[in-house]
Design a protein around this nucleic acid. Structure first.
Length: 806
DNA sequence: AATCCCGACATTTTT
DNA sequence: TGTCGGGATT
């Protein structure tokens, strides 16, 4: 009955298989014995415990290629799941590379979510959805919940909708539907959680929409209640592979277990020591329990590290050994030389940033006895994103190019979401959430009152909002400017939709090009569309007044937003039509900004997982900040252990030079606080650590505290000196000579950039906005910013206001 | 309907 | 110290 076997056949791989079967497999030769075992153990459950930098992706991709080449599996029989699109993409690329051709034919290599979308589109009707359901992001989700909370007459001051969103997400992570919610959860969200959850799910079905959690939840539900469907996929996916298994939540675990129950050929790759997503539902228990869940599992440990020096590995091992209940791994390396992990304390956070700035500068030039590094080789990894500020400020001042990884993603930006709402409304007029989003953006004089009228009319007639608006207009239920503008908007939407008609119908027919049970696809001929979808997108943004809105906006962000809109339109070119684009975007939230020039990276420890850098700075190792107080308060010992794993992840990112630092004083929410060195510093192995002394007056910024005599700083000193971390630092420090005086930093002075400007000129800066030049000093300009106040900034980060695109 | 001002508040984040 | 959301104001 299934038509998959025929339709998904993959010719390329079988050709490759034949070609390679003739020779012994050369791709196996570069593997170490453990990797090789992981690659060749194909049948039965396998747990690959892969420590940081042990060639996990290599093993995983080679394993896929091996299965294909030996004819064990066809590409469409392998289910390979990752968490991020980036990981999926990389795997696809590497498999393709090993195969010597693009791995186009691996239809089931993707993220949990993207694979679930595919599955759910095929079986949507089993959970009451249509197969063209839309996927809501967290923003849509929150607005929906707000409406429900409001309708329930709940004081959203005491019980914010945000909290409800969190509760519901948690439930979904645990695969709890409204029907199988444990009794213990009844009290959630002031006792109204369960009822609101039920309402929310019902509303989603009404809207023919799902949130991210639903993608898994619905598929698990289908598997649990429809044996035939499950059996079909169990048969189909003969080999299952899972990356980052330590990050799976209960829903994902159930999903995998259900699918693997047939052939039991499941290979999970992960590292319990790198489980850092417990706070969003990941269960380390999943990986710890693997052997119990899958009896007879082969457990393979990848412990040979190809990334870091022995000192760095020793430091990481020493820290992580403080955790209980590990599966246990000991990283080792053939490398014999390398720098020790460097540890340094500073007087305060600003000095820490200043020191790192100078250090980066020096290392870039290859001074300090180290080889010269590119800025691209260096990264600063922080615990919390607010710590990035100190570095950004410092780097802007000294003209050090940097890039921030993470942060708001392209498709989460307001202007992008607005634009997308327009596109959504044009392709599916019944999209109420999109309608709500843009009905008064740009301002059309349609405030709360007018929008309520539309809502009521729509509800009374049981139609989508846009139809409600039509009726309201026809009944003359709205007057004045609002009525005229609303009329124009609806007229516009109709017109834009008509321009896309041909495309729409074609898309609906070959959606996913899957027809089950012998259904026939009927091809219909269409004339050429009246304009390309790219032109259409431009027309929509233009005629709706949306572009104009930002062109007239004088805030410093406006030019950037217009720039983003341009980029959005450019991104459209890669798709056949608007619909296809929207589908893609709802799942791919990547921010692949084209990077120019060498830059040092700043990111959170979480964002750094999976990355590596020759030079890594780990600032802010202070108790309360790292480990974070909140984590310890909320999760106690378990929290500390997750923080410790974060420390482990941080250290193991470094290949050659790893520098840990802390500050004795730090401004927290504007208040100065004295800080104690992190407990993790005590867990570093002395023999592998070199303690540096910061430059500055009286032989060290941190120690120089003594010259200050205010009560506050004495208290600070007392605290700091009493901490075990500090005592140890002192002893070690005394044993070693202080570091040589710093060589002069050699920032290139760019006088040309300065000469382009003059006193009193109005200029623009990416981060600080507009301001007037009030001073010139070397290659720096002193600027009185309208929003940010007076600052000295390197001239090349400044543009004259004439240059700013409006 | 839009703007302004005040108080509460403050990890980590992918899909 | 900054941001965001709500209530009061224009």
């Amino acid at each position: 009955m299934s038509t998959y076997d025929e339709s998904d056949a993959f010719e390329g791989a079988s050709l490759a298989a034949r070609a390679m079967a003739a020779r012994p497999s050369p791709y196996l030769e570069g593997l170490n014995p453990e990797q090789r075992k992981a690659v060749e153990t194909i049948d039965g459950p396998v747990l690959m415990l892969a420590g940081a930098g042990t060639g996990k992706t290599k093993a995983l991709t080679t394993r896929i290629v091996h299965m294909l080449n030996t004819g064990k599996a066809r590409p469409n029989e392998i289910l390979a799941v990752t968490f991020t699109n980036k990981a999926a993409r990389e795997m696809k690329n590497r498999v393709g590379h090993l195969l010597g051709q693009p791995a186009e034919g691996m239809p089931w290599l993707g993220t949990f979510h993207s694979i679930c979308v595919k599955l759910l589109r095929r079986h949507a009707e089993l959970v009451g959805l249509k197969s063209n359901f839309t996927i809501l992001d967290t923003d849509d989700q929150l607005r929906l919940l707000k409406q429900l909370v409001q309708a329930a007459g709940i004081d959203d001051k005491r019980w914010p909708a945000r909290a409800l969103a969190g509760v519901i997400d948690n439930w979904k992570n645990r695969a709890w539907t409204p029907d199988n919610l444990p009794a213990a959860e009844a009290g959630a969200y002031d006792g109204k959680g369960p009822a609101l959850y039920r309402q929310y799910q019902a509303r989603l079905i009404e809207l023919n929409a799902v949130d991210f959690g639903d993608l898994l939840l619905h598929v698990v539900s289908i598997f649990q209640t429809h044996d035939d469907v499950l059996a079909q996929y169990q048969r189909w996916f003969r080999f299952i592979m899972v990356d980052e298994y330590q990050d799976t939540n209960v829903a994902q675990y159930l999903w995998l277990r259900l699918l693997a129950a047939g052939h039991k050929n499941i290979c999970c790759v992960g590292d319990d020591d790198q489980s850092i997503y417990g706070w969003r539902g990941a269960e380390v228990g999943n990986i710890l329990r693997f052997e119990a869940d899958f009896p007879g599992a082969a457990v393979i440990r990848l412990e040979q590290n190809y990334r870091s020096t022995p000192h760095i590995l020793a430091a990481a091992s020493s820290v992580i050994s403080g955790n209980q209940g590990r599966l246990g791994k000991e990283l080792w390396t053939e490398a014999e030389t390398g720098e020790k992990v460097r540890l340094i304390g500073h007087w305060d956070g600003e000095e820490e940033a200043r020191w790192i700035g100078e250090e980066v500068d020096a290392m870039q030039g290859g001074t300090r006895g180290l080889r010269g590094f590119s800025l691209d080789d260096m990264a600063i990894l922080v615990r919390a994103s607010h710590q990035m500020r100190a570095f950004e400020d410092r780097f802007l001042t000294i003209g050090m190019p940097y890039r921030v990884i993470g942060g708001p993603r392209f498709y989460e930006r307001m202007e992008i979401r607005d634009a997308m709402a327009y596109f959504r409304l044009v392709t599916s007029p019944a999209d109420d959430l999109a309608f709500e989003r843009i009905v008064n953006t740009p301002k059309r004089g349609l405030g709360d009152k007018a929008q309520q009228k539309i809502q009521m009319t729509a509800r009374a007639n049981g139609v989508p909002l846009i139809e409600g608006a039509r009726i309201l207009l026809a009944e003359k239920g709205l007057g004045g400017k609002g009525a005229i503008e609303l009329g124009k908007l609806i007229e516009g939407l109709d017109r834009w939709a008509s321009l896309t008609q041909g495309e729409l119908r074609r898309v609906a027919l070959d959606a996913d090009s899957v027809v089950e049970d012998g259904g026939e696809i009927e091809r219909v001929e269409y004339g050429p569309p009246e304009m390309t979808h790219v032109e259409l997108a431009e027309t929509i943004l233009d005629e709706s007044g949306y572009t104009g809105m930002w062109q007239n906006d004088k805030t410093p962000e406006a030019p950037g937003r217009l720039e983003n809109l341009k980029e959005l339109v450019k991104a459209l070119e890669q798709f056949e039509n608007l619909q296809g684009f929207l589908e893609h975007v709802s799942l791919i939230m990547d921010n692949e900004a084209g990077e120019d020039g060498e830059k040092i990276s700043i990111m959170t420890l979480h964002a750094a997982k999976g990355l590596e850098f020759p030079v890594v700075f780990l600032p802010g190792w202070e108790d309360g900040l790292f480990p974070s107080q909140r984590s310890m308060d909320e999760s106690g010992q378990r929290g500390v252990e997750e923080e410790r794993r974060l420390a482990y992840v941080g250290i193991t990112r470094a290949e050659e030079v790893c520098t840990i630092s802390f500050a004795g004083n730090r401004r927290v929410y504007g208040q100065w606080q004295s800080q104690m060195p992190s407990r993790f510093i005590d867990e570093l192995p002395e023999d592998h650590v070199e303690v540096l002394t910061p430059p500055g007056l009286y032989g060290g910024g941190y120690g120089a505290a003594g010259m200050n005599s205010t009560l506050e700083t004495r208290v600070a000193e007392a605290n700091v000196y009493n901490s075990p971390g500090w005592r140890r630092l002192q002893t070690r420090s005394a044993e070693r000579p202080t570091s040589q005086p710093r060589e002069a930093s050699k920032t290139v002075i760019d006088l040309q950039a300065v000469s382009a400007h003059s006193m009193g000129e109005r200029v623009f800066h990416q981060k600080f906005g507009y301001g007037l030049i009030i001073g010139i000093e070397g290659d720096k300009l002193e600027i009185d910013f309208e929003k940010a106040g007076a600052k000295k900034v390197v001239a090349r980060f400044i543009t004259g206001t004439d240059d700013v695109p409006f």
